[in-house]
Design a protein around this nucleic acid. Structure first.
Length: 563
RNA sequence: GGACCCGUGGCUUAGCCAGGAUAUAGCACCGGGCUUCUAACCCGGGGGUCGCGGGUUCGAGUCCCGCCGGGUCCGCCA
């Protein structure tokens, strides 16, 4: 699809440049300055790049290139090139549009040729309570990246790293020893114990020693203690998973950080780090000095009591990931920026491939940041419940004749979509403030808009029956052509989002695709059209339905057939 | 104090990494469209010193420097 069109144009320009004797220094990506433009299907402003090198007017250079472009009779997808001042404007031919339509109709246009294995670590919330509205930014971004990479063609392992050795988990274990889990949803029950335990320890500082002893015993692999830690972590994670499943989020594998202590890889990493000569024992703790790399704070690798720390275990985990997968991707909150940078520096020193880190900025509440420990958060479950409730009201208003079962199911699917879309549509590096009013207002720039387009397409197809043979060239109106072109962009959007790890680009595309379909729907009646045109439009409706379904699926949003 | 991120119409936001032809969309506001495939939709309109000041460039929302405002981090927590 679009990538093929683009590739052909690249070839045309490059051979024209050779013909002119122009040498374009490679500056990275998009050397040819190609972009989708309102003036063309694809435009190049490469003449501007060459002007200073050739010391000539870019208009003259563009004209030279234009004159050297081989006759397009043999071009597969390019109809014509226009010279517009310093710009070269390329237009796609009918064959290209027909090919897009055909591939989309056959539902075979949605998987790319990217290769390799990728591990995407996301969510990895501490097993000390339920996911809150900040965590789900991690989960939704991570899961969408996972889906995008799969679409692009990669083999992806979505992984949850369970922090079972941390102080938080020890606090939960201590809490479970002294308090009762109250039987509510697992992760919520754990949170109550954790919050209470934290309060008790804070009020009685002598209890800290008890928590420390738990950490030491777990590190020493005391079997009774280990059973408690693992049971507590597993219990919390089971509740977290339940919430994730509600949002269509599934992990392929779970790794426990304790594994890396047990199998000796943490000790091994420590030995290797010590060999760098940057480590010293200070106040009994092993520390690494990274000042020459711009970090004023040294990195503590081992506590004075000999137990390991998160960052050291994480080093071992990263070495394993780097050795196992071609690409290592992880989604982290902005609070991890500094440690993550330190970790990458340390990995580099050991010659270990560094991860690609997707940082997302914080979600805060109107009155400040969230905290599981202080019990100050809005849980993902609560959010989903409320959005679902509101969605039920909306469905009931629009489809009062439908059964309650139908309306409940639609509300559930709309809620999942609304929550996911609301999170993924914003670029990860924008800090946001959670707002109930905005969360429950999913009327317009939101998932239902896209789901609705899909449902409309399905409705046409339900009523139309089998369209049979059709003449694609009949699709020539502005809205029909625009829709085909938008469908064609799918592979390029996926490819780019997969390389840049920016899922919000797909959210933007989804909105544009739905918009194009809605315009087609409004201006090009399908069922009432003349037989020939009807068949062609029906084919376009199938193509659009498939494109919308693939897009929604990649966003993890249910593609409802009726709503 | 230091490091990193953000600042685009009243509000939310794309474009910034790879500088180019009239700056994207939604909400809200004004006007129009359901006897026609689901109006959770479509069409039109008003509204922008792209935080501020320098610089680089033929050209800056996009790159560089400084400042202002907001966020995050700077634990033998994770």
């Amino acid at each position: 699809m679009f990538l093929d069109f683009m590739k052909e144009i690249e070839g045309l320009i490059r051979s024209a440049l050779d013909g002119c004797g122009f040498e374009l220094p490679a500056t990275g990506t998009n050397d040819l300055q190609l972009e989708i433009s309102p003036h063309a299907d694809l435009a190049s402003s490469v003449a501007f790049r060459l002007a200073p090198l050739e010391k000539r007017n870019p208009r003259v250079i563009a004209e030279d290139i234009y004159n050297r472009i081989v006759p397009l009779r043999e071009a597969e997808w390019v109809e014509r090139v226009e010279l517009a001042g310093p710009y070269l404007n390329f237009f796609m031919n009918r064959r290209f549009l027909n090919s897009v339509l055909e591939q989309a109709c056959l539902d075979q246009a949605w998987t790319g040729k990217m290769e390799g294995s990728v591990v995407v670590e996301h969510t990895s919330a501490n097993p000390d309570g339920p996911l809150h509205v900040g965590h789900i930014r991690n989960s939704v971004i991570g899961d969408t990246i996972t889906r995008i990479l799969r679409r692009a063609g990669c083999q992806v392992d979505a992984q949850y790293y369970i922090n079972d050795m941390g102080r938080q988990t020890a606090m939960v274990v201590w809490g479970c020893d002294h308090l009762k889990l109250d039987g509510s949803k697992a992760d919520h029950a754990v949170a109550k114990v954790y919050i209470q335990a934290h309060k008790m320890v804070k009020e009685n500082p002598e209890l800290v020693a008890e928590v420390d002893r738990l950490i030491q015993r777990y590190e020493a692999d005391d079997s009774e203690t280990a059973a408690k830690f693992q049971a507590a972590a597993k219990y919390a994670v089971s509740g977290i998973q339940e919430t994730l499943h509600r949002m269509n989020i599934h992990h392929d594998s779970f790794r426990w950080e304790s594994e890396f202590v047990r199998d000796g890889s943490v000790d091994q990493i420590l030995a290797e780090l010590e060999k760098t000569g940057l480590c010293e024992v200070k106040d009994g703790a092993l520390q690494m000095n990274l000042e020459s790399f711009g970090f004023e704070k040294s990195m503590v690798l081992r506590r004075a009591d000999g137990t390991s720390l998160y960052i050291t275990r994480d080093m071992a985990y990263h070495r394993w990931k780097s050795a196992t997968y071609d690409r290592v991707v992880e989604v982290l909150g902005a609070d991890h920026k500094l440690v993550s940078a330190q970790l990458r520096t340390a990995l580099r020193l050991l010659g270990i491939k560094e991860p690609e880190v997707v940082i997302f900025e914080f979600v805060s509440l109107p009155d400040g940041s969230m905290s599981t420990r202080r019990g100050k958060f809005i849980s993902a479950d609560e959010l989903l419940d409320e959005v679902e409730k509101q969605a039920f009201v909306e469905v009931t208003a629009r489809r009062p004749e439908e059964s309650e079962e139908f309306r409940r199911e639609v509300a559930r699917q709309v809620a999942v979509g609304a929550v996911r879309y609301d999170v993924v549509r914003v670029s990860a590096d924008k800090a946001t403030t959670f707002d109930w009013k905005a969360a429950l207002d999913f009327e317009k720039l939101s998932a239902p808009f896209i789901q609705y387009s899909h449902a409309r397409a399905c409705s046409i197809l339900r009523k139309a029956g089998d369209g049979g043979a059709f003449e694609p060239s009949l699709l020539a109106s502005r809205d029909e052509i625009a829709l085909i072109k938008k469908i064609a962009e799918f592979d390029m959007v996926i490819d780019r989002a997969a390389r840049e790890l920016k899922p919000h680009q797909l959210a933007t595309y989804a909105r544009e695709l739905a918009e194009s379909f809605n315009q087609f729907y409004r201006f090009s009646p399908v069922l009432e059209a003349e037989p020939g045109l009807r068949a062609a439009r029906l084919a376009l409706a199938v193509a659009a339905r498939n494109a919308l379904r693939a897009t929604l699926e990649t966003l993890g949003i249910p593609a409802l057939e009726s709503m």
